[in-house]
Nucleic acid binder design. Sequence first.
DNA 1: CGGAATGTTGAACCGTTTCAAACGGAGTGG
DNA 2: CCACTCCGTTTGAAACGGTTCAACATTCCG
Lengths: 249, 249
Amino acid sequence: MNTASDHPLMSLVDRLSLHSAISPDDCASLLKLPFRSQQFESGNALAAQGELRDHCSLLVSGIGYRYKTLSGGLRQIVGVCVPGEILDLKQMYLHQLDGSVRALTQCQMVSISHLDLRQLIAKRPNIEKLFLTEALVELSRSREWLVTVGRRNARARVAHLLCELAFRLDGNGSPPIQSYLLPMTQEQLGDALGLTSVHVNRTLKSLVADGSIARGGRWITILDWANLASLAGFDSRYLHVKQVGTCAV
Amino acid sequence: MNTASDHPLMSLVDRLSLHSAISPDDCASLLKLPFRSQQFESGNALAAQGELRDHCSLLVSGIGYRYKTLSGGLRQIVGVCVPGEILDLKQMYLHQLDGSVRALTQCQMVSISHLDLRQLIAKRPNIEKLFLTEALVELSRSREWLVTVGRRNARARVAHLLCELAFRLDGNGSPPIQSYLLPMTQEQLGDALGLTSVHVNRTLKSLVADGSIARGGRWITILDWANLASLAGFDSRYLHVKQVGTCAV
DNA sequence: CGGAATGTTGAACCGTTTCAAACGGAGTGG
DNA sequence: CCACTCCGTTTGAAACGGTTCAACATTCCG
């Protein structure tokens, strides 16, 4: 089900092909890009250092999160990053970065120079179209997240995030996984959902109480997908994943 | 200060050039696109009808808003649209639309066929780069909005939106305007900020009470920009507007 | 083993919502 | 010109969802 290959850039190809058709030629030329690889421990900032300034960062394995910090020290997590995502496209096109990215789990990241990427795009403009498509999907996720935080109550917020993670954590467009290791603390869940870690805790317990999920440590099992999804108001279309499996919701 | 031209597509060129450099050739070829124009009254859905299905919609004048509706009837406004914005790029690249757009004021909209646009892009790939840049700026705004709704209290939320509107409503990259007609009802403000219209009302009054703003009907005057911006935690960089004026904040 | 980070629980508190009623202005028809 | 209606705004009082603070339990990790 997953494309078998240990080439780091294959993660990018896999991800792009979730949302668009990608030609063999485009794929081949992407895989020819020069890159430098780095490892990051959980909790560290996912950012290229020093001489890699004019580079794009690609998350190859592991999970990360995007966040912004308020002056008062409050933090809002604005996105979860999965393998194949380019972490700082914005910097390449806008020469300015707002927000930061950190590793939730141990991560492998790859740096590709803007120059190489621009040369590739000049030769194969379709690559830029793929990037645009990715940006639009990310925008779509961001807007749904906004709905979650703005208009859903705590139970629906937590449920919605659990549903999204079930779809995204294995990252190959298959139906939602039914059981997974939550990659974030309850405090991070709170920062993502606009809640307190205390209230996230109580909400998780209430979801367990009515049998929607089961929980062992950070291990989440979705016991009743239909119930959880309806409670969350979850409609997977906003993820814009070309359905390959047989997933109703 | 505004580019003087009554060609509808000039609004697009103006907007694109807020965030990127745009060559005279690209500009000229954009202006040659065939289009069809439509008017919409305040409150109406901004969407091309029937035979204009495979078209992109460009907002030429007026203000609109994007929103998503929950099953329970609750609504979250996820963006404000100003002239020059393409309303449904997503549909062109992802063949699927989530969310809707409505007119806040009377709007002029122009439709451009996907086919024409694709042909233009094939000839001038740089146009796609401009669209990508726009999408990234919109993503940036969407994330800041998420911070607003997730982690700011009611006063900061309202203040932040007022600051953003001061920057965007006249739409040509100049310093924030100090006085403007709020294009939305308090209920719409609430739907945008994840608040109740009742509480928006009280919050506006409290902003008036401490002298940050003045208000006459829907007319908003920012009396103390520094105060309002600091109260909101507003940092205009997320708008990614190439500063032309002399604006500190 | 010890210490730090994360998770859990209770009780009091507070920002925001809810509900309900009244007010104001704009537009319409008599 | 008045009466009427509609829509948005304003105000008050009560209720609620979520926060805060603080203490304790647990897990993780060196």
